[in-house]
């Protein structure tokens, strides 16, 4: 128990970061899995969520206000996701999609800087969750534990919807073979619009929930995008379970790894990613429905 005792806080922080990364990355993964679109504006969506938190949640906000802000962030994200889906739907070359979405990300970054300034901002946790509780004799912020709980609930809902409902079956079918889905009379455009909307809503929601942990500042969008890309590529593109495993791994590498090996901290993340991809090029848990991949 000595080791765990010494590193408990790092491990818990790793889970909290994993929960946030999962919420943000799962949308990126599903959008790639269903639409074959690598959305480089995904980090901007989550930064928009964080800045919504800065604007709407003040120092002593009640839990109700925080939840309303979270719902609003998800709605804004869904609308932006639908817009991005419409913009990218006419373009079927990965590199040009990357050019387009990175262009959108650059524009969003400057607009956000203009609106909120260059100084780092903080989002307050709701007053009801601001304290800490004892975990094995150590105080730990309630808010971070709540984030883990929210991510678990959302992950379960996503899993059940995708695996157990007809809507989920249509999405899985679209991942596997878009042409065949069209052939049985389902407009795949609508499916894709829905997936992009939900994925983007999760990104803005994740960004707002991350506000009290990571804050909101210019540049956070590309940091989050890089982490989310690592999560989905390590986990396996287009798979919810893969995004979860990737997020858990990256969360621990970023917190526990950094506290155990401070000197090597900056090499750990990308070193781990390179190693996983060279051993398992399709990621640790690739979607069983996705095509053989390997396109860009």
């Amino acid at each position: 128990m000595g080791w765990l005792d010494a590193n408990l806080i790092s491990v818990l922080n790793g889970f909290a970061l994993a929960a946030l990364l999962f919420l943000i990355a799962v949308g990126l993964s599903l959008v790639f899995g269903t639409m074959d679109v690598l959305n480089l504006a995904h980090g901007s969506l989550s930064l928009i969520g964080a800045y919504l938190g800065v604007a709407l949640v003040d120092e002593d906000a009640s839990l109700g206000v925080f939840v309303l802000a979270a719902l609003l962030a998800a709605a804004v994200g869904a609308a932006l996701g639908a817009a991005l889906a419409a913009m990218t739907s006419a373009i079927n070359d990965h590199l040009r999609q990357a050019l387009l979405t990175l262009g959108v990300a650059l524009i969003a970054a400057d607009v956000l800087r203009e609106l909120f300034g260059s100084d780092p901002e903080r989002v307050s946790a709701p007053a009801a969750l601001a304290g800490s509780v004892d975990v094995l004799g150590r105080p730990y912020p309630v808010y971070r534990l709540s984030v883990v709980a929210v991510a678990v609930v959302i992950g379960l809902v996503l899993y059940v919807v995708l695996e157990r409902t007809q809507a989920g079956a249509i999405v899985r079918a679209t991942v596997a073979d878009r042409g065949m889905v069209e052939a049985i009379g389902i407009r795949s455009q609508v499916v894709l619009l829905g997936v992009f909307g939900v994925g983007a809503a999760l990104a803005t929601l994740g960004g707002l929930l991350a506000g009290p942990v990571l804050g909101a500042r210019p540049g956070l969008d590309s940091t989050v995008l890089l982490l989310a890309l690592v999560v989905v590529v390590v986990g396996g593109l287009g798979s919810v379970r893969g995004a979860l495993l990737g997020a858990l791994l990256v969360g621990q590498v970023q917190t526990l790894g950094v506290s155990l090996l401070p000197g090597q901290a900056s090499y750990l993340l990308f070193g781990a990613m390179a190693l996983v991809l060279l051993l398992r090029p399709r990621g640790l848990l690739p979607s069983p429905y996705a095509h053989a991949g390997g396109h860009a």
Partner: peptide, 13 residues
């Protein structure tokens, strides 16, 4: 040994 999006990410690393 990789290609496509995986090549992109490994070269990024």
């Amino acid at each position: 040994r990789t290609s496509g999006i995986v090549f992109l990410m490994v070269t990024l690393a």
